[in-house]
């Protein structure tokens, strides 16, 4: 499961860069979202909406989950979505 969502996250970030008139660049797990890739809060908000459409999941809104807002790197984002997706597949009784 490790890094399996990286291509999905990468695609969303590249869409954001494209939509805002910036050129494509390498998006790797260890890259810092802000300084390496240059995403501001609006870019990040767009990324999250794009990922919600792709994965039908928003870790920032899922009931019961309070994502630790550690979102410095691309890898943090991948981990966040992987955790949210696996939590969503647990039976309700174990949801806490």
């Amino acid at each position: 499961m490790n890094e399996s969502l990286l291509p999905v996250v990468r695609k969303a970030i590249l869409t954001v860069l494209h939509d805002t008139g910036r050129s494509a660049q390498a998006v790797e797990s260890g890259h810092l979202l802000s300084t390496d890739i240059g995403l501001d809060s609006l870019d990040l908000a767009q990324t999250i909406v794009l990922l919600e459409r792709e994965l039908a999941c928003d870790p920032f809104r899922s009931a019961g989950s309070s994502p630790t807002l550690r979102m410095r790197t691309v890898g943090d984002l991948v981990t966040l979505y992987e955790a949210a997706l696996s939590a969503a597949t647990l039976p309700p009784a174990l949801d806490h």
Partner: peptide, 12 residues
């Protein structure tokens, strides 16, 4: 406006 956890809303 689309609700956003990061910016409150996002223009769509």
């Amino acid at each position: 406006g689309l609700p956003s956890a990061i910016t409150g809303e996002l223009v769509a």
